[in-house]
Simulated assay, not measured.
Amino acid sequence: MERFSEYRIMWVLVFFDLPTETKKDRKTYTDFRDKLIKDGFTMFQFSIYLRHCASAENAQVHIQRVKKNLPPKGNIGILCITDKQFGNMELFVGKEEKKVSTPYQQLELF
């Protein structure tokens, strides 16, 4: 088995739609977003954040952290996909196709 298999490496995507009507709602939104960023998630689109994980086990650690920080109101979705599936994504800006770039730098220490 390859050391870095595109079927073993995972991406965790968090989709959320949180209320922002009141000052308290906006603070809850900001706190949730800040916790995602602190845990290594990167904004992919508005209210869609993603994180690269070395394995399914590592992805589960980060999924549990997201679940621990769920706000009391709003809609939150969590999706875990392989690096191979992520690489098959097609992105468009208007009608122009855009190359899918990975928002991380893979470092190998050993």
Rank of each mutant, 00 (worst) to 15 (best):
F16D: 03
A56W: 00
T42K: 14
S55C: 04
N88K: 10
F32S: 09
I63A: 08
M10E: 06
C80K: 07
Y7L: 12
R65L: 07
S47E: 04
P71M: 15
G77V: 00
C80H: 00
G77A: 13
G94K: 07
F110C: 07
K67L: 15
N88P: 00
E2V: 12
L109E: 12
F41G: 05
L79H: 09
S5T: 02
R8D: 15
G94S: 04
K84D: 06
F16P: 06
V100I: 05
K95N: 10
L109Q: 12
N58M: 12
T20C: 06
V61L: 14
R26N: 11
Y49K: 02
Q85E: 15
V93H: 06
N88C: 04
G40I: 02
K27Q: 13
Y104I: 09
T42H: 04
K35F: 01
E6T: 05
R3E: 14
H52K: 10
Y49V: 00
V66W: 08
M10R: 15
P71K: 15
G87H: 01
D17N: 15
T82M: 00
M89N: 12
F15C: 09
A54F: 05
S101F: 02
R26V: 05
M1C: 06
L91F: 14
S5W: 04
V12I: 14
F15T: 11
M10F: 00
K35P: 00
F92C: 08
A56F: 01
Q105R: 13
L50F: 01
D25Q: 09
R26A: 11
L109C: 08
K23G: 09
W11A: 00
E96R: 15
F86G: 01
I81A: 03
Q60Y: 03
F32W: 08
F32P: 12
E57R: 06
G77K: 15
G74L: 06
F15I: 10
K99T: 13
F92M: 13
K38Q: 13
E90I: 11
W11G: 02
H62M: 07
R51P: 07
K67T: 13
N75D: 14
Q105L: 12
P72Q: 02
M1F: 06
P19M: 12
F46D: 02
Y29M: 11
V61G: 00
Q85G: 03
K24T: 09
L91S: 09
F46G: 01
G94F: 05
F15G: 10
L109F: 15
I37A: 01
D34G: 13
L18K: 09
G87P: 01
Q64V: 01
